[in-house]
Nucleic acid binder design. Sequence first.
DNA 1: CGAATATCGATTATCGATAATTTATTATTT
DNA 2: AAATAATAAATTATCGATAATCGATATTCG
Lengths: 229, 229
Amino acid sequence: MEQEGGIPRDSISNRVKKWISERILNGTYPPGHRLVELQIAHELKTSQGPVREALRELEASGLVESEPFKGTRVRQVSAREMQEAYQVRAFIEQHAAELAAFALRDNTSRLQSEIVAAHEAAEKGDIETFSRHNAVFHRQIVEASGNSILLRFWDALQFEIRSQVILSQEKFSPLEGEKLHQAIIDAFRNGNGKLAGRLLRKHLLGFADTIDSTHEASWVHAGRKSSTG
Amino acid sequence: MEQEGGIPRDSISNRVKKWISERILNGTYPPGHRLVELQIAHELKTSQGPVREALRELEASGLVESEPFKGTRVRQVSAREMQEAYQVRAFIEQHAAELAAFALRDNTSRLQSEIVAAHEAAEKGDIETFSRHNAVFHRQIVEASGNSILLRFWDALQFEIRSQVILSQEKFSPLEGEKLHQAIIDAFRNGNGKLAGRLLRKHLLGFADTIDSTHEASWVHAGRKSSTG
DNA sequence: CGAATATCGATTATCGATAATTTATTATTT
DNA sequence: AAATAATAAATTATCGATAATCGATATTCG
């Protein structure tokens, strides 16, 4: 049985949550934007309760922040925090790679197919699709580590990071990254988790270094480019 | 201006949250125990809303879990998950130690005082106090790393772990750990973050290894001992 | 004029009631 | 008696209304 309009089969608060995060991630609601419970409730033809619940969950995941009696706003992630996030991601993945070495040995076809898909998207200039496949590639490694807590943290970071896309046009050189990705896959195929880990770490820390305070205003929100810089 | 009864100056939902987590952590609500919104609301002379909100926040922090329309229960943490948590904690702290090397060089007095306090508590057999100081010791290292995301993850882990205290009586040998702690402090004093990191990692992974499935039923809830084993 | 205070509009926090859903119980059929 | 269906009880999810608090503006007093 299918629903008609919006997002199907889910509690209202969940639908609200998706609706809001979509708008945050695609830049409709920019950092600092105020989210008024009753206003959103009215817009979505529901009541305050589910909206409030959705906002609280988004707060837990770091996408918005709220103060008692003052309300909720889309969170502004500082350049510093962004760097920290990438540093943490770097060593999460390094560690995951070492743990995943056994599981991925001679078992890299799924990794490979993500890289292929990412490559195709990159050639078409489709950043959105490229990013998705790229993310899946990295996530698969953490998944293969077999440590669910590691994966939970990785997901949390990824979600938080997504709100501030890091691919400013100048830095977007997927071709270079591609060689590295291939090297990582090769390392896994040979069962060399240590090497794969080192490569991943280097890759991500390099990314972190490209984030500086001058970027803060010139980040690209998924979809549209903001030429605030 | 002081309140009279319970916990002062906080939103109701926050007070409810503290009230519930207290009961989970001290074993009043054991794993699997069902938490009924209206029942708790009635017991605390409030309404469903704040209780629901509190439960959702506790879910986000991993202390309880809930399914749509089926309700909320105190989460049972498996031995496996516990091991994973300690593994993650181990390498978080290892990494933090390396980052903290500079900040802690010739600046270990606060670490030292926690160890002293922990030692005193241990001699008195006061596990509760020992654990607290021990936790602060480790947390200070992560704090000194200067990476707030790392600290956030560490806090999340710590909170989750707290619900299943790991110091079963047999394994409670603080004296052995003490030497290690001292060695860690010495390493920091000499600015040797790598060494401190290795020691921390070894310490924590050793801990993780003592957790096996036979422990699952014999964990000690903070405060009272459950001789379920 | 300027500081402190009262008032108003907007919004969050909480409440009590109702709808939707699950779980348990009873009735019905074979 | 076992399996299935119908009903009832319990609980979560949502709603609409009220209370509490914030921020801004107007007002009073020195």
